[in-house]
Design a protein around this nucleic acid. Sequence first.
DNA 1: AGAGTAATGTTGTCAGTGACAACATAGAAT
DNA 2: ATTCTATGTTGTCACTGACAACATTACTCT
Lengths: 203, 203
Amino acid sequence: MKHTTKNPTPYHHGDLRRALIDRAIEVVETEGVEAVSLRALARDIGVSHAAPIRHFPTRSALLAAIAKRGITTLLASAGQRANEHGMSSLEKLRSMAEGYVAWAAEYPAHHMLIRNQDVMRHADDELHREANAYARLHEELIRQAQAEGWRSDQNTHTLFVEITALTSGLALVASDPIYRTVLPGQLHAKEVGSILGRFFSEA
Amino acid sequence: MKHTTKNPTPYHHGDLRRALIDRAIEVVETEGVEAVSLRALARDIGVSHAAPIRHFPTRSALLAAIAKRGITTLLASAGQRANEHGMSSLEKLRSMAEGYVAWAAEYPAHHMLIRNQDVMRHADDELHREANAYARLHEELIRQAQAEGWRSDQNTHTLFVEITALTSGLALVASDPIYRTVLPGQLHAKEVGSILGRFFSEA
DNA sequence: AGAGTAATGTTGTCAGTGACAACATAGAAT
DNA sequence: ATTCTATGTTGTCACTGACAACATTACTCT
């Protein structure tokens, strides 16, 4: 016989996969990657301890899935910025860097995860392919900017390293709570803009 | 009755603390922070599973102790570079940045640990104090370099962020295995020198 | 509509781990 | 020599990831 009243705890959750991801992101942001436990997530959500396995075979798979989602959105945003009309390669480079830093600040959990050795170690090939796609897009733009006259006398690889370092560093400072202990004062988006503006200038 | 032959496995290890640290560093470098397990370390070394607790009350304490040791040596090296005679503040800044990147490349495990959110979260106040000492030394040098004419028109905080980001980023690229997937080719010390030389130039 | 199948959730279990307590041993101090 | 303290061992507990066997729901095909 069917219930006429709503069942308070239905057998099936509805969107457990999404719920796991959302809760995991919360935990990463508040307590760190280490604190993510499949059983604790299940408890928080209100399902049995083994339910998560239907969606993510291992804990690493869950974290890697979140990281992958992050890289995908980042790559999409970068692709857009790199294909904007009426922009020089140099302007595109700057836009990509700004986009990266802004993305890290907006999604600190995703950023932490893609920076986490233990997570990336268990990531599948596609994730690494996407990360490489981002790097190659970057590299190609640098080459073009150099062809258009920007720092054309410098070694492309060195320039790539420099841009990668500066961008990654800014993303770190923008999203990593560790820096909040060390940094005197808050990091403002305007500062990032000013730093990148200076770096990606014609001079 | 006493043995006249050497006991192959003495009751006391001799220097278990050191052995734990050494083995933990190896594991961090080869398998990542996550793979460090007190019980596994004990097994590898050949002591009982609870022996490590005499030296480090928790797993976090062990990792934090290694991180602290790292920051201490880093700070010592930075202090030396900052007090070198016959160097302008700008040259000292450059030397500090180079020292940091070289340190990260030489001690990747230590660098990973001080960058690890989960480790630093459980670190004691003294560790944070040392990290702050490093930052304040940095800041003071920037102020002096500006007083001596370098980028004197720029905001000190923004400059601090920029240097921190560039240095941290280079250290990441120099020591983090993740970048080996993305980077086309190896990172050479010469490149780091060229990047920092350009950045810390009078021009 | 109804049967059969796939997807999803549950219960039970196992080995590995961190942490703790109680006990054992060796070396140092008096 | 006796006692004390540092260090190591054994035993145990709760928690976790992973897996297997089973239950329930949703979906599909006719």
